[in-house]
C-alpha cells in the first residue's frame, strides 16, 4: 500500500470514523446518565454531547499513531458495537 493511500485511509478513519463514533457515544451515554446518575434528560444530553468531543479527539490522535490500519478500523468497529449494545441493553427513554 502506498503512503498516500494509507494517509487517506487514516484521515477517513480520523474524521468520518471519529465523528460517527462520537455521535454514537453522545446518544448511547444518555440512558447511562439518566438511569445511573438520575440526572434529567436535558442535562444528560448536554453532558453526553460535550463529552463526545473527547472521544472524537482521542480517535483522531489514535488514527495517526503507530497502530496498524487494520487494528485502527477494528478498534473503531468494536467500540461502536460496544456503545450500541450499551444503548440497547438499557431501557429506552
Amino acid at each position: 500500500m502506498t503512503h498516500t493511500v494509507e494517509v487517506l485511509l487514516r484521515c477517513i478513519a480520523a474524521i468520518v470514523g471519529g465523528y460517527a463514533l462520537s455521535a454514537l457515544f453522545s446518544v448511547a451515554l444518555v440512558p447511562v446518565f439518566v438511569h445511573g446518575l438520575e440526572s434529567s434528560l436535558s442535562s444528560s444530553v448536554l453532558i453526553a454531547t460535550m463529552l463526545s468531543y473527547m472521544v472524537f479527539f482521542v480517535v483522531i490522535i489514535m488514527s495517526f499513531c503507530r497502530i496498524s490500519l487494520k487494528g485502527l478500523y477494528l478498534g473503531i468497529m468494536t467500540s461502536s458495537i460496544l456503545l450500541w449494545s450499551v444503548y440497547k441493553a438499557l431501557p429506552a427513554l
Binding site: A23, S26, V27, V45, L46, A48, T49, M50, Y53
Partner: peptide, 15 residues
C-alpha cells in the same frame, strides 16, 4: 463548547 449542540446535534435530535 459554545456551539457544541450545533456541531454534534445527534443526541438532541434523537431524544
Amino acid at each position: 463548547m459554545i456551539y457544541v449542540t450545533m456541531y454534534m446535534p445527534w443526541s438532541a435530535e434523537h431524544y
